[in-house]
């Protein structure tokens, strides 16, 4: 019952946010090399998880959805902007079941498209000045600036590890990176601004960080697991791509901890290679070692623990609110993030 509500709400609020998002994409030149491409990733769909969480939080706190819709559209635009840049930085080949933008149009154009998506993401926040008043709109703008900073810092951590081929990354480092890179944009920011809009910035926004962190960390670990064990058509990206990219996932960190000295050395040599030189055989060996040392099961259990912690934080934050569809949706998210395929 709880899990069924999530897809329904995501569909409803995701469609609403996307509809609002497209209002901010100008129908003017240059279309071929900019605005058509700006619309490309949003048109591919996606779950609309982030804007839905923002709208649902606002509604759970007693706010009309219209008040949160521009902010939700902004979140989705900024998310798409970061996806375009992330795909370049990670040398990803597929996004939402299709080739990534930089593989079809080249890196310079893709960077420019990402820049424009980021700028368009600020537009709805300026509209907030008119609809929500200058004080609340400015607070949301400040929140957005913080979210973007945290996300960039998290991305820098991960890129730095790969650049230096760091083999000393520990679980706590990984969780801090996830807190910044994944959780701020994906969970913490939507919940914070949703509550901020609904309460006219009267609740303590920091109280939402823990819920968003645990939910987001469970989400990220499950995402990394799906990259290894999921169905490529459902997942929308290449399977095993994280190993190929040298991403420091919880499973890889666990493998570094559990492996023998020789295996660690081989693993380090493999990750030091340029992406194109990592062979399928080597990737398969990494995958086999992960199975051998139980790294996948380990990560799955950590994700389950974090989801339980997120449920606990939910009860502290939302427990006092009356029952509603939106409250049930947020309540169901911890289970949904670790059960999704």
């Amino acid at each position: 019952m709880l899990a069924e509500i999530v897809p329904a709400v995501l569909q409803e609020y995701g469609a609403a946010a996307r509809s609002r998002l497209f209002q901010y994409i100008p129908a003017r030149e240059p279309r071929r090399w900019l605005y058509d491409l700006v619309a490309d990733y949003p048109q591919r769909g996606g779950r609309g998880f982030r804007p839905s969480l923002c709208i649902a939080t606002a509604r759970a706190f007693g706010c009309p959805p219209e008040d949160a819709l521009d902010t939700a559209a902004s979140i989705e635009l900024l998310h798409n902007a970061m996806l375009v840049h992330d795909d370049i930085e990670d040398e990803s080949e597929r996004r939402r079941g299709k080739p990534t933008l930089h593989t079809t149009h080249g890196i310079p154009i893709a960077i420019n498209v990402g820049d424009m998506l980021g700028l368009l993401g600020l537009r709805p926040l300026l509209v907030n000045f008119r609809t929500l008043g200058p004080r609340l709109a400015l607070r949301i703008l400040e929140e957005t600036e913080r979210m973007a900073s945290e996300t960039a810092e998290g991305q820098a951590m991960e890129l730095g590890w790969r650049h230096e081929n760091s083999t000393s990354v520990r679980e706590a480092d990984y969780l801090e990176m996830v807190l910044k890179k994944t959780c701020w944009l994906g969970m913490i920011h939507p919940v914070r601004v949703g509550a901020m809009i609904a309460t006219f910035d009267s609740v303590d926004p920091d109280s939402f960080i823990r819920f968003g962190f645990f939910l987001g960390a469970a989400f990220q670990i499950q995402d990394d697991l799906l990259n290894l064990t999921g169905d490529e058509n459902d997942y929308g990206k290449e399977l095993g791509g994280d190993i190929h990219e040298g991403k420091r996932t919880m499973m890889l960190i666990r493998l570094f901890e559990a492996a023998t000295a020789e295996e660690r050395e081989r693993l380090g040599r493999l990750l030091a290679l340029p992406r194109a030189e990592r062979t399928r055989e080597e990737i398969a060996w990494v995958r086999e070692r992960m199975d051998h040392y139980g790294c996948i099961e380990y990560a799955r259990e950590v994700a389950q623990g974090l989801a339980g912690a997120a449920s606990h934080e939910f009860s502290l934050l939302f427990g006092a609110l009356p029952d509603s569809k939106d409250k049930r949706f947020i309540e169901a998210l911890p289970r949904w993030v670790i059960e999704r395929a």
Binding site: E171, L175, E176, Y298, V302
Partner: peptide
Amino acid sequence: IPPNGHPSLEAGVSTAYRVY
């Protein structure tokens, strides 16, 4: 041999709280 396969639930959650 593989490391013990006991759930790392407790360790994972306490690490997350410490990071937070």
